[in-house]
């Protein structure tokens, strides 16, 4: 499938906040109440349209457990956007946000768009974190905020698409260097500018810095 841009996302957050469910809801439009714990990093993709352009979202769904932290860290680097998820019914997941944010800021490129998501908004009765608190946290750290429910699919699309819009705007503004794949943005095959082809790639060149 051809696309204008490919954005790489990463979903982070404590274990059990519903990262995999968000992804599943976004990519497959279904909800699986019982979900295996994510081992390592999983992967999903979907095409969306922004501003009339086809954009492929490639989403890494990471394991929230501490044990996998080192693995997930290695994924920050190639991501253009991150969804930082907490569970509104569990205060501790909210409390850990700072750690996650630090982690993300540290390992990702500085332009990465981070969206704060308070998931499980359908469980209003068991809410422990007020929406306002999330808003405050987002404002303080310059994040976009949204409450979603992977179960009812409320705001799920919006969360991903708004993030994509943000990235797209940044591209238009020229903030992102779209030629650097490490930013998590790739230009689609038909859009790719005639890149300097290197028939025999430089022997010492880093694999990460390869041209398109």
């Amino acid at each position: 499938m051809s696309y204008a841009y490919l954005f790489k996302y990463i979903i982070i957050g404590d274990t059990g906040v519903g990262k995999s469910c968000l992804l599943l809801q976004f990519t497959d439009k279904r909800f699986q109440p019982v979900h295996d714990l994510t081992i390592g990093v999983e992967f999903g993709a979907r095409m969306i349209t922004i501003d009339g352009k086809q954009i492929k979202l490639q989403i890494w769904d990471t394991a929230g457990q501490e044990a996998f932290r080192s693995i997930t860290r290695s994924y920050y680097r190639g991501a253009a956007g991150a969804l930082l998820v907490y569970d509104i019914t569990r205060r501790d997941t909210f409390n850990h946000l700072t750690t996650w944010l630090e982690d993300a800021r540290q390992h990702s490129n500085s332009n990465m768009v981070i969206m704060l998501i308070g998931n499980k908004s359908d469980l209003e009765s068991r809410r422990e974190v007020k929406k306002e608190e999330g808003e405050v946290f987002a404002r303080e750290h310059g994040l976009i905020f949204m409450e979603t429910s992977a179960k009812t699919a409320a705001n799920v699309e919006e969360a991903f698409i708004n993030t994509a819009k943000e990235i797209y705007e940044k591209i238009q503004e020229g903030v992102f260097d779209i030629n650097n794949e490490a930013n998590g943005i790739k230009i689609g095959p038909q859009h790719s500018p005639t890149s300097p082809s290197s028939p025999s790639g430089g022997p010492g060149s880093s694999p990460g810095s390869g041209c398109c």
Partner: peptide, 11 residues
Amino acid sequence: DRDVNFQGDKV
């Protein structure tokens, strides 16, 4: 004529 290498991984 044209062999292209993509961005890989440094591990």
